[in-house]
Amino acid sequence: MSGYIAFVKKEFTENMKNYRFLILFAVFLIFGIMSAFLAKFTPEILSALAADMEMTSEPVALDAWKQFYKNISGVGFSAFIILFGSCLSNEYSKGTLVLMVTKGLSRKAVILAKYTVAVALMTISYWISYAATYGYTALLWNDTSLAHVVFAAVSLWIVGFLYLSILMIGCVIFKQTFTSILFTGGIVALISLLGMIEPIAKFSPFILTSKNVDLISGKVIPAEFVIPAFVSFILSIFGLLIAIRLFNKKQL
């Protein structure tokens, strides 16, 4: 336990010192702001630049959330996976973990600490981004008709846990950053594919990343999200357990 806490502290400092947190914070904040901003002003800017362009329809608050989910589930999480893809490979290649492990730090604690810090930073960045979109949307439209805005955001957040858990497996198996990232991307793509197959689509965590906008616009009801969220949660824990098991047998 003490080893876990010490290593969490170390991971946290490390992510500050190597600017990972700063970058992610900036990326997510800017995406949050830009989601609402571009949804509102892109048509106006375009029509100001090209006078002959007709505005097809007045942008609404839902457009801001469309942008938000597209950006975060795509670029936002990718940035996260790319930056954290090196969280173990650096330690493998330099051999820095050897001294820690030979001091009695359990390997489980290493994985859990790395996961904890990644999840914590993801959570902070994610909700900052959400707050920015929320604030700007409220500022630019005085629209309060949207339902389940928070619930929709929570479901994408839950997927973040799953992605990071998959990333931990990738990082444990592969000694190179690039392969770890590739592995994670592959598994995420696989989940999306499985999410399209009819009989299991209802249970797949893929729903959590693809139907958030439908939830806000009222096309789907929150109940449909409950099972996928549960599945995602179980898979995250399962993924972590696999990562720990594999790491126990890994040569450092």
Binding site: T96, K103, G104
Partner: peptide, 21 residues
């Protein structure tokens, strides 16, 4: 892969590597 006995041992590798920062 277990670290229990390592509490009795201090280890210095041939090229020790630390966290540079």
């Amino acid at each position: 892969g277990q670290t229990r006995t390592n509490q009795y041992i201090g280890y210095l590798p041939d090229v020790p590597e630390f966290y540079n920062y």
